[in-house]
Computed example of a mutant assay.
Amino acid sequence: MTRTITVVTPAHPPNAPFLSEAYESLCAQVLPRGWDWQWVVQEDGESGLIESALPEDPRIAFGTTPTSGPAVTRTTALAHGTGELVRNLDADDRLLPGALFRDIALLADRPEIGWTASRALDLLPEGTTRNHEENDLPEGVIERGAVLRAWEEQGWILPLVPGTLCIRRDLLLALGGWMALDTSEDTGLVIAANAVADGYFIGEPSMLYRQHPHQTTAQDFHTDPRRKHQRRLLIIERAKALTSLGDRCP
């Protein structure tokens, strides 16, 4: 019986030109025996541009969501997903060789680990790469609560790239999917996941993180100080509430 890892990609019209490269990076993945990937592409909106940019491939599932933002789009994509593992891949990013193999091998072998993250490389407009700043963890187990502590201590810079997250589907659903924020929903998810489950940081880079003017993290609504402060408070409060509930459970 084939087991599946679902790769979730939210997209909106400006992402359409990048989808072919994301797809090629998926096709280049070599998976452990008995595994296959599924790519769920969910459009935030109903323009038709995203669907027309996708190739014909039975491993691709496409859906649309009335314009609602990335958190709703990502979580709604789970309705089309069949995999027991769920991996992030933003529409403008690319997986590096071996990315899915390492995620699957680690989580299949370590049932006590709830999720993985890994190193990433920035992909610059001229085509060169550099190490991404959110790569401060050594390879190994990430104990519960460690991501939130590092985020607070490092002036709100995460020690990992949430776009590299691979998580067990049942854990993702138990957390309610991606956090219902206008942005930083993936940060909210990885901190929540680490509040209830150990993770594992993989030292080998798994993703090219494209840097360009239209990316979400470059937009005013993402960088506005007041909004950032509000999001941080909610992410922290949620993580602490989850930790408290876990401590009270037998």
Rank of each mutant, 00 (worst) to 15 (best):
L175C: 06
G176H: 09
G176S: 08
G177C: 01
G177M: 07
G177W: 05
M179E: 04
M179L: 12
M179V: 14
A180M: 13
A180N: 13
L181N: 05
D182Q: 12
T183R: 07
T183H: 13
T183I: 10
S184Q: 07
S184F: 12
E185S: 06
D186Q: 05
T187I: 08
T187C: 00
T187L: 07
G188I: 08
G188Q: 00
L189P: 03
L189T: 00
V190M: 03
V190E: 01
I191R: 00
I191C: 00
A192W: 08
A192Y: 09
A193N: 00
N194S: 01
A195S: 06
A195F: 00
A195E: 01
V196D: 05
A197T: 11
A197K: 06
A197Q: 14
A197E: 10
D198Q: 04
D198S: 08
D198L: 00
G199I: 02
G199N: 01
G199A: 01
Y200H: 09
Y200Q: 04
F201H: 11
F201R: 02
F201E: 04
F201V: 04
I202G: 01
I202S: 01
G203D: 08
G203S: 05
G203P: 04
G203E: 02
G203L: 00
E204R: 14
E204C: 13
E204Q: 14
E204W: 10
P205Y: 10
P205Q: 08
M207C: 02
M207W: 04
M207T: 06
L208N: 02
Y209G: 05
Y209E: 12
R210K: 10
Q211W: 13
Q211K: 06
Q211D: 09
H212T: 02
H212Y: 14
H212I: 09
P213S: 11
H214F: 12
Q215V: 14
Q215A: 13
Q215K: 13
Q215D: 15
T216P: 04
T216D: 11
T217C: 15
A218L: 10
A218G: 08
A218N: 11
A218K: 14
Q219F: 07
D220W: 14
D220F: 12
F221A: 07
F221Y: 13
T223L: 05
D224W: 02
D224C: 03
P225C: 01
P225A: 05
R226K: 14
R227V: 08
K228M: 09
K228G: 03
K228N: 04
Q230H: 08
Q230D: 10
Q230I: 13
R231F: 01
R231L: 02
R231M: 03
R232H: 06
R232C: 04
R232P: 04
L233E: 12
L234Q: 11
E237I: 13
E237K: 12
R238V: 07
R238T: 14
R238S: 10
R238E: 13
R238N: 14
A239T: 13
A239G: 10
K240D: 15
K240C: 12
K240I: 12
K240Q: 14
A241K: 07
L242F: 08
L242A: 13
L242H: 10
L242G: 01
T243E: 15
S244P: 03
L245S: 15
L245N: 14
G246D: 02
G246Y: 00
G246L: 00
